[in-house]
Design a protein around this nucleic acid. Structure first.
Lengths: 241, 241
DNA sequence: GATCAATGGTCTGAGACTAGCCCAATCAAC
DNA sequence: GTTGATTGGGCTAGTCTCAGACCATTGATC
């Protein structure tokens, strides 16, 4: 935590992996966050490669890997494309314990702390902002979408609600950071059983977050997000034993 | 801000540039954040290349570019190395207006929002944490270092104080994110004249931040950071006219 | 002054990545 | 059925990047 610690912080690896690996990560993020829902398809290869800033060759390698791993179904011809087939496996405490162990104590702690900081920071900023009617509507719509969701769509709409907060701040960088923070723990979140009592509890917390933001109360927004995230964080940490 | 907005968020470029460009960016960050102070030297090429995960060839290209741009002085032989020669230019409102204009309204707003969110998020998380005596000492030491600084060292020690908050949370990811957020606006901050009244005001705010964190009061910590950052943010935004 | 360890400077061959082109398959529209 | 637009599949030549070896310079130590 001294001077040399800051050297480690800044002079860290410039790249997390080669282009192929980073592309797979990014596509997995899109799939697991539900940006492209099951049955939906990715943009055409040429367009997607341009967006990701990589060559089609590299993109196709990544798509092939995900296809072989069962995340995508690729079809040729007009109206073809790479269709998402992934569906989170049924929540299972055994899987959860396994996933938490694979991640490791330090990494899990880092990921949870990071998510707490950026999401509560985003909520607090948004609560400080003058919101337009459109923005208020969007937040409320995401909230009611989530409350009306079946178990099928719950994860995806929960993600959508959380990410909307960061997106509404208008900071692209903040939005990507929150998306990144969530995707780091998405496998773990997906493995948490969705019990009725928990969902009701979450619904109350989601409402509290939205109300604090709409009321322009950053302290309340901060507290509501912190309380909400600490709940799942404590649950995950408990599996570290 | 609808579904397609999220596609843009996640399916963004995988890489910000080629290895050379990203390396230059990273070294500049280390220099401008004062991780390596003026007169200090970067680690030997072989070690630095390994840390950054790039080849020596690429690293050397980046170093040569920074050397030609006047940031580094490279000397051969034992006890040689790449020595930092950079020193922020004298603060000047004209430069500031120029720099703000070059950055652009949207990008500036994004950067300021991002910084506010992550730094206040970090402070809030740290205020929620049980701190060891060592951690409390470090925070207080950084604070007194800053208060005892001459104009010469002020920027660097201000950065050190701010980044320490994120580092003390124990989340590497959060520390790098805060460092990134600050480096995005460091040129602008450096161009702000250091007036006596402003420095006194900042000193009070820094103290308030540290006290709130040490008192374990996340709401106060959040407010103190927000107030502190909003001051400079408002100043920068004023130059957008 | 000679020695030698540490450091930057340079070269080469191999692999990763890209841009651009053309081929093959599919299916709505006619 | 034929056509044509759209999409995935595949190839090639060229550039970027890397790993590793070897050379050149420096200056503290002896």
């Amino acid at each position: 935590m001294d001077e040399s610690a800051r050297l480690m912080t800044v002079l860290r690896p410039v790249r997390a992996g080669n282009a192929f690996e980073e592309t797979v990560e990014r596509l997995l993020q899109a799939i697991k966050l539900g940006v492209v829902a099951k049955g939906g398809k990715l943009p055409p290869e040429r367009e997607l490669a341009a967006r990701l800033g990589i060559s089609r060759v590299t993109l196709r390698e990544a798509i092939r890997a995900l296809s072989e791993a069962g995340y995508l179904d690729v079809r040729r011809g007009r109206y073809g494309g790479a269709f998402v087939t992934y569906e989170p496996s049924e929540p299972d405490p055994g899987d959860l314990r396994q996933a938490v162990k694979e991640m490791g104590r330090a990494e899990l702690s880092d990921a949870l702390t990071f998510r707490l900081a950026v999401e509560s920071g985003a909520a607090q900023v948004l609560a400080t902002t003058e919101l337009t009617g459109e923005q208020r509507d969007l937040l409320l719509r995401r909230l009611s979408d989530l409350n009306g969701a079946g178990l099928e769509d719950y994860r995806r709409l929960d993600t959508a609600f959380h990410l909307s907060i960061a997106e509404l701040t208008g900071s692209t960088r903040l939005a990507t950071t929150c998306a990144d923070a969530r995707s780091r723990v998405s496998d773990l979140l997906n493995a948490i059983p969705m019990l009725h009592v928990n969902l009701e509890h979450s619904a109350l917390q989601h409402r509290a977050i939205a109300e604090a933001i709409l009321a322009g109360d950053p302290d309340a927004a901060r507290r509501a997000v912190a309380e909400h995230l600490e709940g799942t964080a404590a649950l995950l940490r408990a599996f570290l034993t």
